[in-house]
Nucleic acid binder design. Structure first.
Lengths: 415, 415
DNA sequence: CGGACTTCATAAAGCCCCTTTCCTAACCCC
DNA sequence: GGGGTTAGGAAAGGGGCTTTATGAAGTCCG
């Protein structure tokens, strides 16, 4: 049972104010107070803190119609840089952001199927991180942190990748290994939670209540934003909706079970849906998920019956799976995220809405909006970078312990 | 976005301290501080409050082995009474509790199938409430509140039963109607949340993290205790797991969909499982759920193959359904509650554990314990009474608004 | 049997957080 | 350039929790 302290309120408010500033930059203290529901005084204090941190700057005044003009603050984009690392089965994707969360540089490393040893992955990551820092030309001291997303089960406090199903990793001390190559503060979590936190800060969950972020990629899962924060579960593995049984005794899943949601709506599952509909379809690119999904998206855009049918079949499965989440969690928003959702886009969304409506109860259904992720870039990178941002913000509140020198961050902020 | 205030911390702490006192009565301030993680001073303050409210009393001292002996406090059982009302499809069950949550009196009213109008139900409720108060012989002023659980969708703030599927109620202002007959403070919610809060205060969720309370009765659903509190969802309808699709195109459910969990593991679903296994089984009491489940329980105890098989089949469905909750929510505890679970007991539990293990992922599975509800009485009544207790405790913190007379409770505490 | 030691409980002071209130600053308009 | 208006900061106030100090109530032992 974790107990809340008044400090947590402060931290939450600090997050909220910064979120709001990033979302509506430039903005005034008045607007912030209205948007957050905090008093003017509190907003002013928090804005002062953020100004001290050089995360935001004063950028002039609003035009006044009688009365003192409102001072405007905006994100100090050049006040620091954040790096998000999205480690996936076949690639490592790294993006460097300014504090307004604009992408300043990106790097992508492809991993061949054989490359599964931690050292190999770490090699790719550190190369890509080095690359984005060089590209963006930011001083090393400006990098506030690096968020790393790795599939599977992670322990964020120890930085250990406890289990990564795709590479059969067990208890790899990923953060320690990475810290030998990367001298910035590091934060570890998994892609489900990364994309959820991205939606929470910058996407469809912003300012809303409970939200479910459905990730549709090669792997499938759900990030849960409940009660204004990430729901992690007792062992930080909540959201494994992709390995939930959708069809009793259905398709064999790589997790060992049968009929998992992932085997019907993951990229490979969709390929299978296509294959079952028309084994020698021209849309099918065996062994290439991306190409197949792209072909499908193009086909749907051209109203090819085959493509439309596959998307509809997929949405039917997806709708049944999402209806479970809607009924059980009663969220305000359901976000479809990750690359498969992005490419299939609106047509998928429409079909999913219909399918969910067929399976969910009226009341929870009526309370939920199902939307595509409004985040234009890789949500996992963005979310990972957000973990770094949260980390940088967290340490603000910490006071130095009595009679001791001020606390130093875990890794010195110098390349 | 609800924002937390320091007042909420106080309320949570007050709950926590009282919970602890009820659980380990008598106990000392020292033990309370250790158990809650609060400082001695805070515990002393809260204990003082509860003493002032006459909810607890000082009951002597602990033996000392050198040093001042610890003062002991215990629940003041006679300090007040709480009433829990469990309105179900076929009965109204009412229990009156003392503050230690012992049952002092109970009353049960049966409802014939035709009786579905709100006035009829209210008649039963007020009769039963009157009965328990008379039986227990408590002064009316001592009744701190009445918690009412009604199936379906409720709005607890307005006290409206928005939708009750079994009677086809729509927007019945139940609390207003009840307050014409019952002069105690009233609190409305649904059985899922009632049994969840019962587990949170007095059962398997006590002191643990995220917990899922699986209700197996005629209706089926899950109460969610996440982050130390009830998860309600955006429209207070979270937990509708019973109407989640378990078998695509499966049995027709009364909710209109096919293949809902409830149609396989609810009392009627279990009867159907039995019927499909052996249409003219001696265990089957057509039209009588209770008798059938009882017969099944007896059969399992006697190791009758037919009964064992039905329980196994049921557990297989149940396991698949619970595995979804385990994977998605990653709870620390899963509680099997309500009358079907209570009657089928250990044999069901064993089978369920095995079945869940077959469907859930290893990590979340390893983190969860699946248990039967340790609550010996009707958990819904207990939970409903707990809502009343929470309500009585809530008003402690409220200060009278400025320049006005002290706030009065909604219904005067006099019969 | 009374002082010394131990342990509990309450009171006081300090810190953190948020809000309300008051006052000055800054700008518009006439 | 004064009056009206609005912004923003400083101070005061209220609630909460913790640490520290002090008094209270025992045991133990000389």
């Amino acid at each position: 049972m974790k107990r809340g302290t008044s400090r947590d309120i402060r931290t939450a408010n600090r997050y909220e104010v910064l979120r709001q500033i990033i979302a509506a930059s430039p903005t005034s203290r008045q607007e912030l107070a209205a948007a957050t529901g905090l008093s003017l005084a509190t907003v002013a204090t928090l804005v002062g803190e953020l100004l001290d941190l050089r995360m935001i700057t004063e950028v002039g005044f609003e035009d006044s119609a009688g009365g003192r003009p409102r001072g405007l603050v905006a994100v100090n984009a050049s006040g620091g840089a954040l790096i998000g690392v999205d480690i996936a089965e076949t690639y490592v994707h790294v993006e460097l952001f300014d504090l307004a969360l604009n992408v300043l540089a990106r790097a992508e490393e492809h991993m061949r199927p054989g490359e599964s040893r931690p050292e190999q992955v770490i090699g790719h990551v550190s190369a890509a991180v080095g690359s984005v820092v060089a590209q963006a030309g930011v001083e090393a001291a400006r990098v506030l942190g690096v968020g790393v997303s790795v599939p599977g089960q992670v322990d964020r406090s120890t930085g250990i990748a406890e289990y990564a199903p795709n590479w059969d990793w067990h208890d790899v001390p990923l953060l320690d290994l990475l810290s030998e190559h990367i001298a910035y503060p590091l934060y570890l979590d998994n892609p489900l939670r990364a994309s959820a936190v991205a939606e929470l800060w910058f996407g469809a969950a912003r300012g809303h209540g409970d939200t479910v972020v459905v990730n549709l990629g090669t792997g499938v899962g759900a990030g849960l934003v409940l009660g204004g924060g990430l729901h992690r579960g007792v062992s930080n593995s909540a959201g494994e909706w992709g390995h939930t049984t959708l069809v009793l005794d259905g398709r064999l899943c790589r997790c060992g079970n049968h009929g998992c949601v992932e085997t019907y709506v993951g990229a490979l599952g969709i390929m299978q849906n296509l294959r079952e509909l028309s084994p020698r379809s021209a849309l099918l690119h065996p062994g290439d998920q991306t190409a197949t999904i792209d072909a499908l998206a193009a086909g749907v855009a051209a109203r090819e019956p085959e493509a439309v049918k596959v998307v509809r079949d997929t949405a039917r499965y997806l709708g049944a799976g999402i209806a479970v989440l809607v009924n059980v969690l009663n969220p305000e928003v359901v976000v479809l995220s990750s690359w498969v959702a992005a490419r299939l886009g609106e047509p998928l969304l429409e079909e999913v809405r219909e399918a969910v409506a067929r399976h969910a109860l009226k009341r929870p259904l009526a309370a939920s909006r199902i939307v595509l992720s409004p985040i234009p870039t890789d949500p996992v990178c963005l979310g990972a970078a957000t973990f770094a941002l949260e980390g940088a913000l967290q340490s603000v509140g910490q006071r130095s312990t009595k009679r001791t020198s001020p606390a130093r961050s875990r890794t010195a902020p110098s390349a």
